[in-house]
């Protein structure tokens, strides 16, 4: 049974962002079931992440429960080989061992490409961690077509001083885009006197292309932010489809607290990753220890990008290609994952 939970890596592939509502999380789960062609049962953790919290708060943990409801195995990270071994111990061997490739499952996730290939300046988030940004969801109100991702340096979380990241990301499930002929996204903070920010409002820069789906990002300097004082943020934007644009105003309450369920977005929270460490991580998928990676040795998130990494197109990521990839240990390289 698969337990669908909050995203571990929002924005990684397909520009998926953390859902705000149970309906949105259920949609995520159904999308995953459909994409994978899965036939096993799935359960979905409610929005308070109670099952994840109750079972140790890991992204990809695994438990085996016996017929009495007792935990008989647990591990922090799913390991299909170990699970098979466990089940053979617990219930016996199967006549035919089914391998992943026998299932013929489609494991390529959709990548949402910008409606138009335009350059929109991105903001560096290295070393930042997600903050709790509670959307004020009104009964019967419009969906959050655009979702705020709020991150901050640890100095903000610990001492109330440092850089604050605001990223307004289009939720790909709503299939809307920015219409750049409309007014750009605008946000405004309501800050009490005790809070000092470099800016209390902002407007996304104009983009030349008529439309795109890139996030609108801002970096704010925080000079003072008491821990017990949330900041109210109001954002106004136009969510557009091919035929329609609607003006949306929505409100968040941003807390100076780390969101332990926020996941790690690419380019964030990986500060200090050296080229050597990156190479080691890449080679952790090297099943036959030959110092090279084949397509099958990449995980399914990396696999769609195999051709980009395989510079000489020989079907193998050799030492030279892996080193080049590892050397790109900057925000863009991490985003590529």
């Amino acid at each position: 049974m698969f337990v669908y939970k909050s995203l571990a890596h929002p924005e990684l592939v397909g520009n998926y962002v953390q859902p705000f509502t149970l309906d949105e999380r259920l949609t995520h789960a159904r999308q995953a079931v459909k994409k994978l062609g899965a036939t096993i049962p799935w359960i979905v953790d409610p929005m308070d992440n109670r099952l994840k919290h109750a079972l140790g708060d890991r992204a990809n943990s695994e438990y085996i429960i016996d017929p009495t409801g007792t935990i008989v195995r647990k591990r922090a990270w799913s390991d299909p080989v170990a699970v098979r071994r466990d089940l053979e111990d617990l219930v016996g061997q199967v006549a035919k061992v089914t391998k992943p490739e026998d299932l013929g499952l489609p494991v390529v996730l959709t990548t949402a490409e910008p409606a138009t290939n335009v350059e929109v300046a991105r903001v560096s988030r290295l070393g930042m961690f997600p903050l709790i940004a509670q959307p004020k969801i009104a009964q019967g109100g419009m969906p959050f077509y655009v979702k705020l991702r709020c991150e901050a340096e640890l100095t903000v979380i610990d001492d109330g001083k440092g850089k604050l990241y605001l990223g307004f990301h289009l939720d790909p499930f709503y299939q809307v885009h920015w219409n750049n002929l409309s007014k750009p996204l605008r946000f405004e903070f309501e800050v009490p006197d005790e809070i000092r920010l470099s800016e209390t409002s902002g407007e996304a820069p104009r983009v030349k292309a008529e439309s795109d789906v890139n996030p609108r990002e801002f970096l704010i300097d925080v000079a003072q932010w008491p821990e017990d004082k949330p900041i109210r943020l109001t954002v106004t934007y136009f969510a557009c489809t091919e035929n329609d644009c609607r003006e949306v105003t929505q409100v968040y309450e941003v807390h100076r607290r780390r969101d332990a369920d926020g996941g790690a977005a690419p380019g964030a929270a990986f500060r200090g990753l050296t080229s050597e460490a990156m190479l080691k991580l890449l080679l952790s998928g090297d099943k036959n220890d030959d110092g090279q990676l084949t397509r099958s040795e990449l995980n399914s998130v990396q696999r769609p990008r195999f051709a980009d990494f395989d510079i000489n197109a020989d079907g193998i990521l050799d030492k030279n290609e892996l080193q080049k990839l590892a050397d790109r240990t900057n925000a863009q390289a991490l985003r590529d994952f």
């Binding site: 337990v3 998926y16 149970l22 259920l26 359960i43 099952l51 943990s61 429960i65 017929p67 799913s78």
Partner: peptide
């Protein structure tokens, strides 16, 4: 705990009795 099936129906983890079950956590990305 009370959770949901992927089609939004309530599901109780207490119902996981009577057989071995593997619970694997994960997400779309």
């Amino acid at each position: 705990l009370s959770v949901f099936t992927s089609d939004g129906k309530p599901f109780q983890t207490a119902d996981l009795h009577g057989h071995y079950t593997v619970l694997t956590f994960g997400c779309l990305t």
